[in-house]
């Protein structure tokens, strides 16, 4: 079931990353580093092989800025990021991708709403090569400060990703909202909520049968979508591509460390409904620095 990766997003990615330097100002550099614990990295339904995993990672983003006039900015980014999953090495990955965004502020001032739309590309190489993929997405969003203390943000994505193996290939649409509450110039509380509809991958514990490896949950064989045996985890597992709707909600507390750095502790709960429902909780600690 291995397929050659299509080059469509790769070509766009390359073109975008070559674009900035010549006509814009930058790059401005920002870095992140994080550690996280995810209690259901397999996205398994309860009793079917729920495994937790610890990971850490870091990334850097170079941004170029160009004035489009009329309160319009054109932003182009190039990001690189790595994640090391210490529990299951197959999930470790490196990611690189460009992003091009047109951002328009409706008026002058800190409280004027701003809108953006753009395209986001990403190539991800996993240690488990069949998961390696290229992704492209249309992105759009809105943000507005309501006061010095409150800011609302809304981000949408329409994405498509093409992996080495069809199980890890799919499409999705997502919307995410956030409310930032700055208690003062140091402490921020952030509440987030998200919705996603599209393809996800669930992994079920596999058992040997006269027909080969089959999922421990025999009903899973009736799930629509592709599936196959994977070696990503220590035990035998079967990975499914399922179409699902996901709701997520999270809360984070983020103290600023000076004017260029912040620390964020976030707890996020993910609930997926559909043919293969699962729950997932992610606790992460991250640091962000902008030069």
């Amino acid at each position: 079931m291995l397929r050659p990766t299509k080059g469509r997003f790769g070509a766009v990615a390359l073109a975008l990353s070559l674009l900035p330097g010549a006509w814009a100002d930058g790059p401005y550099v920002s870095d992140t580093a994080r550690v996280s614990w995810e209690d259901n990295v397999t996205n398994a339904s309860a009793g079917n092989g729920v495994l937790g995993a610890f990971s850490f990672g870091a990334g850097t983003t170079l941004s170029w800025l160009h004035s489009g006039g009329f309160s319009t900015l054109i932003l182009s980014d190039l990001s690189a990021d790595f994640t090391v999953c210490t529990s299951y090495r197959g999930l470790s990955n490196i990611e690189v991708g460009p992003r091009l965004e047109v951002r328009h502020k409706l008026g002058l001032g800190a409280f004027a709403p701003s809108l953006y739309a753009g395209i986001d590309g990403k190539a991800t190489g996993f240690q488990d090569p069949e998961q390696s993929k290229i992704e492209g997405a249309f992105i759009f969003g809105y943000s507005q400060r309501l006061s010095e203390a409150f800011q609302v943000q809304l981000d949408g994505r329409l994405g498509s990703y093409d992996a080495q193996d069809i199980v890890f290939t799919g499409n999705y649409a997502s919307l995410a909202g956030a409310l930032n509450w700055d208690l003062d110039e140091t402490w921020r509380i952030r509440v987030t909520g998200g919705w996603r509809a599209g393809d996800t991958v669930s992994n079920y514990t596999a058992v040997m049968s006269p027909y080969g490896w089959i999922p421990i949950e025999s009903d899973a064989l009736n799930l629509p979508g592709a599936w196959h045996y994977v070696r990503t985890f220590d035990a035998p597992f079967v990975a499914y591509r399922v179409s699902a709707r996901t709701w997520s909600y999270g809360i984070s507390v983020s103290p600023a460390i000076g004017r260029h750095t912040s620390l964020t502790l976030e707890v996020k709960r993910v609930e997926t409904v559909g043919a293969a429902p699962y729950l997932d909780t992610v606790v992460s600690l991250s640091v962000a620095h902008r030069y």
Partner: peptide
Amino acid sequence: DRRIRRAPDSEGLGYK
């Protein structure tokens, strides 16, 4: 003295 926070955002982890 109430000013807008300058420190950058950490976007946290996106959900899968």
